[in-house]
Design a protein around this nucleic acid. Sequence first.
RNA 1: UCCCCGAUAGCUCAAUGGUAGAGCGAGCGGCUGUUAACCGCUAGGUUCUAGGUUCGAGUCCUAGUCGGGGAGCCA
Length: 463
Amino acid sequence: MERITVAQARREESVGKDAVISGWVRTRRDSKGGFSFLELNDGSCFGNVQVLAEASLANYESEIKKLTTGCSVRVEGSVLKSPAKGQATEVKATKVDVYGYADADSYPIQKKGATMEFLRTIAHLRPRTNTFGAVARVRNQVSRSIHDFFQEQGFLYIHTPIITASDCEGAGEMFKVTTLDLNNVPTAEGKVDYAADFFQKPAYLTVSGQLQGEIYACALGRIYTFGPTFRAENSNTSRHLAEFWMVEPEMAFFDLYDNMTLAEAFIKRIVSDVLNKCDEDVKFFAERIDKEVPARLDGFLKSEFLRVPYTEAISILEKSGQSFEYPVKWGIDLQSEHERFLTEKHFGKPTILYDYPRTLKPFYMRVNDDGKTVRAMDVLAPGVGEIIGGSQREERYDVLVDRMKECGLDPETYQFYLDLRKYGTVPHAGFGLGLERTLLFITGMGNIRDVIPFPRTPGNAEF
RNA sequence: UCCCCGAUAGCUCAAUGGUAGAGCGAGCGGCUGUUAACCGCUAGGUUCUAGGUUCGAGUCCUAGUCGGGGAGCCA
């Protein structure tokens, strides 16, 4: 007998088929007539398929009547047009086999609502809920769209290293990677003797694949990386993870404006794919998680992103008459209250801020002719803040060396990076997009710990 | 890391310093196709932990643990 998914069984074309469906019981409803309805889900789609189990089945009293939320079953039967409202099809069972029961006294997932905080403590069972199933499918779709978008445009997918020995960028605290016995650390001249360590020098988990990405972009043109990234910052917020996924495209012969155009097309592609391919999941997010989701995504797709220089943004803020906790002045880093005012109140649409003061940004961003600003850009979305950060890179050897020194870095340790400018240098640009932040924006979920299967945060590496 | 808030049944939440309750879930019974089904009955508790105040603490105090909201840092 043909094996089909719940998604297939729910489609009208399947009516008339005899098939096998396997999945987990979401609910059982006993009808007045002495038979039961089972709602079955197997993850293939948001919805469940309704299984009709009649009392004439051999194990009706002994097994089927004992099924509760979480039990796993195999159903043989025929797909019929459903006579009742609520679903197009249903499966009339000719045989129901139980793979495993889920003791209802202890199984923590029930039909009615549980809090996200509680579900987080049972991360091994939470993908069986509507919410986490939907998040997983949307996360999968976004990941796929990332690859589709870049592959269609001829970008190469480059695998940059997870372990790195260059303590660079100052992009937050890094996790150390070592095989040294921490209870008995070898020392030399009173300091840790890294010569005795695996890499014979300090090594870390990557905070960005950008520098390695630039190496490949400066040879092969257009590349992207997509993988896990690690930050050892002691951040306890709904927007930070110690381990998260980041997409970083890098393009030779792109200037900052090319970069903006690409970033906008990229993020719009992701959003429109989710709307087109995860409609049931999006509908659920709109109904149960965040009512604003459809309007926000729709507005996002329809509006042209604004492009506003930092200097202009500052003067808008200064003239706004708003009182901010952090006073506005040229040269300050924009706080979330400032970004929110600009995108939500003043512009009311996604906005790309660019040309930031050089003192605020890392050494690798290209210095403008004014000498005061660099070719940086942040894409700000209403409701979520920064979702993309990028820049045109400094391609002039001497300027780059000066900037390294200015940022307190030793140019000698970045010789490989300088070589890209020494030999056949090219203008190039790139950006980074945080996968989980994008998912917050798309799903309306409130906490970043709930859009990654197994969140790692300070004090938490369970499961 | 800083500020604020919270922790009571499997889950979601009540309870003026004076006998710990409800809804859902579960078990049993009822109900002629149900849709988070419905109706009745039953079982279910180390009130986060350790101290303290009090005749008496879920409630007040101190410390800790865990969680949430906000901020900083950032993606």
